[in-house]
Design a protein around this nucleic acid. Sequence first.
DNA 1: TTAGATGCAAATATTTTGCACGGAA
DNA 2: TTCCGTGCAAAATATTTGCATCTAA
Lengths: 141, 141
Amino acid sequence: MPQDDIPPSPIADLCRDKGLKLTDQRRVIAHVLSESDDHPDVEELYRRALAIDPRISIATVYRTVRLFEEKGILLRRDFGGNRARYEKTDHGNHYHLIDAKTGSVIEFEDEVLEVMLRQIAQRMGFDLVTTRLELFGRKLK
Amino acid sequence: MPQDDIPPSPIADLCRDKGLKLTDQRRVIAHVLSESDDHPDVEELYRRALAIDPRISIATVYRTVRLFEEKGILLRRDFGGNRARYEKTDHGNHYHLIDAKTGSVIEFEDEVLEVMLRQIAQRMGFDLVTTRLELFGRKLK
DNA sequence: TTAGATGCAAATATTTTGCACGGAA
DNA sequence: TTCCGTGCAAAATATTTGCATCTAA
């Protein structure tokens, strides 16, 4: 019983581009991810996916995020908690500033920084693929 | 039966400074950490500690790294594997370049970068406490 | 003496996997 | 039709915890 009220999503398009088989489950997960601008963990993704279509198991969510990460569709993040959290790659190149007190996450971009990081990698003989940058700070009064 | 051939170590000193009770186990773990310039996970720390003194359990290693992390003696790292890895805080401010193919980790420092990061945090109203930066790159031919 | 640390094993938490079945291409 | 994906439950991994005992201060 296919779920046909799942709208097309940018991430589902990416799946097609990469030659992945588009099952209903992947369509749902892709949709959920496309709608998410935060950093959900697998449990949370599972919850959001279930709300759309109950015919999905957590094993599939685990398999799918792993697949998507390999394909470069998702980035795995570690914000200090114990579980992995994910975000879209197409979300743009950005970094995180984390309030050391509250744990709240602020995203930011910085082109100058980006260029500098690329140069640093270059200088060490590497072509920069991905960056993971988290600044932990205390709020100024 | 205390183990008295464990030499004093910088990290053991830190423990004393922070008012932590210095048990034989902590002394051994502190020593192991002081000697380590890599990024061992708990399993590896346990192995190294066991080689020095067999009277230690993995539960204690878990408890100790958690305590040391809270006290700012250790930093927890995530290099993409499934387990947490640790390094000394007093190791100096540095960043990581990870070979996307082999997973090998290269450490580097960069004062200009450091200043820039501090400014970025400042600009967003934060006083920079800690930075976590990992560059994933592909080796240039 | 006493609050806190440890070992052990059991409990949790997180993630992966074997297998039979189902569905996309 | 033919792989490949999925659900389920069991297994594997990783980490935490209850409790009796021990020990640094």
